[in-house]
Simulated scan of single mutants.
Amino acid sequence: MLLDKPQIVWENEDAEKFFTELSELFELNDRYEKIKHKTELLLDITEIFSSLTQSKRGAKLEWMVIILFLIDILLSVLEKLLF
């Protein structure tokens, strides 16, 4: 919708020529494509960082579970040895 022509362009031929000239002068289509590409790239980067953060957090939780299992095993072995 950003590059859509305004309503006045459909009603007035001079306005359409003026809009087309300004669009070409300011290179609106090229700029829009570049901005679109950059925002898609930024979205990809944020998704990658998000997945890395989640995997890092998941790895920490897995290690915590492993450590808790080891502590549980050690406590049960010590309990059987002492009693």
Rank of each mutant, 00 (worst) to 15 (best):
L2N: 09
K56F: 08
D44W: 09
N12Y: 03
R31P: 02
I66C: 02
P6S: 03
R31Y: 09
E11F: 01
Y32S: 12
N29H: 13
F18H: 08
T53I: 08
S51D: 12
R57M: 09
W10G: 15
I71S: 12
L2V: 07
I73D: 04
N29T: 13
M64Q: 12
T20R: 15
I73M: 07
S50I: 09
I67Y: 04
L68W: 04
F18L: 12
I8F: 05
D14I: 05
F83C: 03
E47Q: 14
F83H: 07
E13W: 06
M64H: 03
L41Q: 14
L78E: 04
K38T: 11
T20Y: 05
L41Y: 09
K5L: 06
I8W: 06
K34C: 03
T53E: 15
G58A: 14
A59D: 09
F69D: 11
E47R: 14
K36T: 13
L25H: 13
E24R: 13
L22H: 07
E40H: 10
I8T: 06
E24I: 01
I66Q: 12
D4M: 06
L42S: 15
T46H: 14
M64E: 10
K60G: 00
E21H: 06
E24H: 06
F49E: 14
R57A: 12
I71Q: 04
S76F: 10
E24V: 00
E47A: 10
V65H: 10
L75Q: 08
Q54F: 07
D30W: 02
K38C: 03
K34L: 10
R31E: 08
L41T: 08
E62A: 09
K36Y: 10
I73W: 05
L78M: 04
I71G: 08
T20M: 10
L74D: 02
I67A: 08
S55K: 09
E24W: 03
L42P: 03
L41P: 01
N29F: 03
L41S: 13
W10L: 10
Q7T: 04
F83L: 08
L43E: 14
F49Q: 12
F26Y: 11
E24N: 13
L70Q: 06
K17M: 02
W10P: 02
F18N: 05
E27H: 12
I67D: 04
N12D: 14
L74K: 05
S23N: 09
Q54W: 07
K5W: 08
L70P: 00
E27Q: 15
D14Q: 14
N12L: 02
E62L: 07
V65I: 11
A59T: 13
Q7K: 12
L28M: 11
S51A: 14
I8A: 11
H37R: 15
L74H: 04
L82H: 03
F26P: 02
L3V: 00
K5M: 03
K36L: 12
L43P: 00
V9E: 06
D72P: 00
S55C: 05
A15M: 05
L28T: 04
W63F: 07
L78Q: 04
L3I: 02
E47I: 05
L22C: 07
D14V: 07
E62Q: 08
D4Y: 05
L68Q: 08
V77W: 00
L42G: 13
W63R: 05
T53P: 00
Q7Y: 02
L75H: 06
E33K: 14
I35R: 14
M64S: 11
I71H: 05
M64P: 01
T39H: 12
